[in-house]
Amino acid sequence: MKYICSICGYIYDEAAEGTPFEALPADWKCPLCKAAKTDFKPEAAPAPEDTAPQTATADTATNTVPEADLKKLSAGQLAALCSNLARGCEKMYKEEEAGLFRELAAYFTKITPAIPDADVEKLASLLQGDINSYDSIRAQADALKDRGAARVCVWGEKVTRMLSSLVTRYLHDGESLLAGTDIWVCTACGFVYIGETPPELCPVCKVPDWKFEKIERRAKA
């Protein structure tokens, strides 16, 4: 029997490893991306071809919003839109323009209204909501043959699962989660990794370790 990591795709092959998956301790982690044991799924038998994107048409219909709403983006969306275009300018070696888009992004980040009652449990439930939405987004993208939108789901779902897994672990383990260790973010795909050094290659998007950024402790006031 094989078990597959839902985040990085690592395959735990019981035959090769010698220990049944069920016998591994509850705090066992994926050797590649350190996802929790509960993020592994048994290798599924290949699904019949015709079952997959049946919900696509219905979802497309329910997700349609009036034209006016489409154009009205929130401060949070505009912040990401501008910081994304800043990255685009960086890649085109347009430093001045990148700086200007970063200025706009910082403005929108600043004016984004606070979320009432923000706490870790509420964050966990939003993350779970996103995880649940990826199947229908992917079905819609496939039905429209929108390759880019489908691609967003690939890394997006894996990274969201990792965030959800870490938040769940924090709710369970509390402050021991990062005791004596560091936490890193892949600046290409957003994958989050706990360890003294970042992985040689990002387990999700495969960029080299220097693309990871370490999150520093709060500066002492």
Binding site: G76, Q77, R151, G156, V159, T160, T187, C189, G190, F191
Partner: peptide, 12 residues
């Protein structure tokens, strides 16, 4: 991480 995810979505 969320910002990077949102950026990727806005791009598409």
């Amino acid at each position: 991480s969320e910002r990077i995810l949102a950026e990727d979505v806005m791009r598409e």
